[in-house]
Amino acid sequence: MVTNFMHRLNIDDRGLASRRAFFEITDEDLARLATHRGLAESHSGEVVEKLYHLLLGHPESRAFFPDDSSVRRVKQLQHTYFLGLFEGRCDLAYVENRLRVGAAHERIGLAPQWYIGAYGRYLRLIFDHLFGELGAAEAQAAVQSATKLVLFDMSLAIDTYIAANLDTVARHQAAIREMSTPVIKVHQGVLLLPLIGTVDSHRAEQIMETLLMRVVEEQARAVIVDIAGVPLVDTMVADHLLKTTEAVRLLGAQTILTGISAQIARTIVQLGVDISAMHTRARLADGIVLALSLLGREITAKAP
């Protein structure tokens, strides 16, 4: 999962170097932060407590921490996270660790608003301690280094959040696509695709791909496409139906178009679309009879 995000965000040696360069994180920044590790350790408990004071003080963000044990667990993680800023490194292992944060936030549905606010609190807490205990010049330098690294972390968290979100959308779209192209096997060698709803270009392409795969999987010789549920048949839809028919033919199967109402027939003729290459029937039932006859079969009444 995290490895996948490393790849998606293009974080390899080169990608990391470029990202670090943009945030102007130098080795001196990292070394400077490392010299203040002792200071960080002595205050880490307090920083984490104050951070959770903020997060638990708002009902919306509080909702993400269902019970005391989960609060204890995330506080422990936060502890490690905080000290990570003062490790003096910003390498692939560091980034991999940071990416887990964004992915975890997306998984539980914690939107950027909440953790950006939390990062803000973090920075103020760090500033307070640095200015409180170091000389002005050193504090100034340390604050700059810490700001760079925290904002770098924030960029990783948000980029991961967006990528994970896109994955979620993709999964939903795939599910919807599957539902919108239900290819039914009505008989050995006969497939039925009942089209319902608007057919746009994107969906038409999907329909063709799904249908072609199924024809080969099922070794179907006849495909019935029923368009009774398509509200509008225009030139684009007719063109896609013709393309699908030709592609199905290339595989070695035939297409039968059914569900052609008087209005659709009128439209097709008025548009001047040549559908002479297709078998057509008004009713689905007639399409099934035709499909079976193409396969050398027929439906007959039982002997009395």
Binding site: M208, M213, V216, L250, L251
Partner: peptide, 23 residues
């Protein structure tokens, strides 16, 4: 002819008219 090959030919606008095909 594979599904992706059939789809690609059709999308390009190439029609193999007159060629008989089988599964």
């Amino acid at each position: 002819i594979r599904p992706e090959v059939a789809a690609t030919l059709v999308r390009m606008g190439y029609t193999m008219s007159g060629v008989r095909t089988a599964l």
